[in-house]
Write a protein that binds this DNA or RNA. Structure first.
Length: 272
DNA sequence: TACCAGGATGCTA
DNA sequence: TAGCATCATGGT
């Protein structure tokens, strides 16, 4: 999501782009009005599902708001309008491989550079733009074709994962009928995909909202807001965080990935 | 300059 | 299995 001018945004997914604007109503307590600039068919056929508009989040928001945990409650109240998007699987695979050991602005630059080099040039009513690359383009370009994009050691992971993605004909349908733990296990066989990245792909690429990615920010949250023990932060292991999650957020297990998004947004203080 | 980033991997005990 | 070093690169 990019804000290209005040109140005007662009959203990209795969080869698609959507422009939308938000306007503040005269009555400040009324919800903001969103205008999407696309055909009704395109909205109903793609973007409505992309934004997960079929799902009623109100119950989840109110449950979280009344959870009794100060931080979770606050996060739900402030950021409960953030939805877990139905994003493209390959795009999530590559984007989250890039994300490891990088800051968010740097991740964004890398993805843009990758699109610029390997994405197809697309055109809509607002002009031309670059799509997210197809796996074929990355595979054909070879590992050397990824040089100069600030990818560092991740270039090999991106290339090899792209080749495997093609060879196995991977798609969202490949995971149909698979449980969240089964999907995560399969994803972790890909180069450069560990526990955290696999969870992100499950959450954003497969919409498995039980997935709860634990990164550096989430570790801070879990320790500061949920941990009841006496150990110092440095002493906690990954297993400890899994235990904290089960004990403190177990009642939300079927939607905990959604709560993760709200708390993450609250932690980094931006509404993306 | 030193340290850290929406971590993953391979080696060692 | 747990703990640790190492892996590029950019930002602070």
């Amino acid at each position: 999501m990019y804000e290209i001018e005040e109140g005007v945004f662009e959203v990209y997914s795969g080869a698609r782009r959507l422009r939308l604007s938000e306007s503040s109503p005269a009555n400040e307590s009324a919800p903001k009005e969103i205008t999407v600039f696309c055909s009704k068919d395109e909205f109903e056929g793609f973007w409505k599902h992309f934004f997960d508009l079929e799902t009623d989040y109100a119950k989840i928001v109110s449950r979280a708001a009344e959870s009794g945990n100060r931080f979770l409650s606050e996060s739900a109240k402030i950021y409960g309008d953030i939805r877990v998007l139905h994003q493209d699987l390959y795009e999530m695979l590559i984007s989250f491989i890039i994300s490891q050991q990088k800051q968010i602005p740097s991740i964004r630059k890398c993805v843009e550079a990758l699109c610029e080099r390997y994405g197809r040039t697309m055109e809509d009513r607002f002009g031309t733009y670059k799509a997210f690359p197809e796996p074929e383009a990355i595979a054909e370009g070879g590992i050397e074709g990824l040089a100069g994009l600030s990818l560092g050691y991740r270039d090999r992971y991106i290339y090899e994962s792209s080749v495997r993605y093609l060879r196995e004909g991977l798609s969202k349908e490949s995971f149909a009928g698979m449980s969240y733990p089964e999907a995560k296990t399969r994803l972790k066989t890909y180069e450069g995909v560990g526990e955290k990245v696999a969870n992100c792909i499950c959450l954003f690429g497969l919409h498995m909202v039980s997935a709860f990615p634990v990164d550096t920010h989430v570790k801070d949250i879990l320790y500061r807001e949920f941990y009841r023990g006496e150990q110092p932060f440095e002493k906690l292991s990954d297993k400890d965080y899994v235990r904290i999650l089960e004990e403190e957020l177990g009642e939300f297990v079927e939607v905990q990935g959604i709560l993760q998004q709200w708390m993450f947004a609250n932690e980094i203080g931006t509404k993306r």
